[in-house]
Design a protein around this nucleic acid. Sequence first.
DNA 1: TCCTAGTTTATAATGGTTCTAAATAGGTGT
DNA 2: ACACCTATTTAGAACCATTATAAACTAGGA
Lengths: 132, 132
Amino acid sequence: MKYIEKLRNSGLRPTKQRLKICEVLFDTKKTFHFTINDLSKKIKNKMNTKVSLATIYNTINAFEKKGYLKQIPINSNQTYFDTNVTDHHHFYDLKDEKLIDLENTDVGPINIKKKINGKKIKSVEVLVKLEG
Amino acid sequence: MKYIEKLRNSGLRPTKQRLKICEVLFDTKKTFHFTINDLSKKIKNKMNTKVSLATIYNTINAFEKKGYLKQIPINSNQTYFDTNVTDHHHFYDLKDEKLIDLENTDVGPINIKKKINGKKIKSVEVLVKLEG
DNA sequence: TCCTAGTTTATAATGGTTCTAAATAGGTGT
DNA sequence: ACACCTATTTAGAACCATTATAAACTAGGA
């Protein structure tokens, strides 16, 4: 199983459930955005497996902490995650409530001039809201 | 009362409660960030008035829709609002869970090259996460 | 195989936000 | 000033995403 090492390396035991989650998240050519609810449905439909919500939350939170997933900063009732963990930005279509990736080449370099004493920049994320 | 016109212009009746909320939000030299909970406490303590949570939510949501307030896109259990409705960006201090304004001069111009058919850019917001 | 700590699960609890329905207040026409 | 209609306020219930709980189960080493 190709994800066992990945899980072990980040201190997670490779359980059946976590391997299923890995398949859904990482066995795709394209990266994608999802909510916990999306993911739960996908596991049920595509994998014909039932994994409890609690396990999905635990695992996704662990992955996020380890850097295997990114949270997308957006005000919504649900939390959005991204399997694309490289530096990139997003459009948010307000009408359709849909997220669209902005490739790095779609956004010019962002120059943060202000510094805060003793703090390091961890990430710079741009959210472009679309209307109409 | 200096806020009556402001409220009327945006289709809101100037009630006692809304005027209190306006005072707390807009009677300051500096703009600030807040959560609904923050605001509720401030009204209770500074104004010696009790306004129900439902009213605060209704009013803040109306103000946000009218453009008197901005939501700050950030993944948190609570929604953050900003009384500074000019275009500007934010630091988010992950350790202290604190928001810090970035003046417009603190961030170089942001060039969004990608276009989506039939959609207009409503806002461009940058969130810089700080660690350490 | 046994043991122990980590994991999964159903379910309950939590907490921010929205809904509801009754009481109240604003504002227009008389 | 009054009456009337509608918007607003309010306490409390409802909602719903997320987290906590505790019992059953499992991975993996001895």
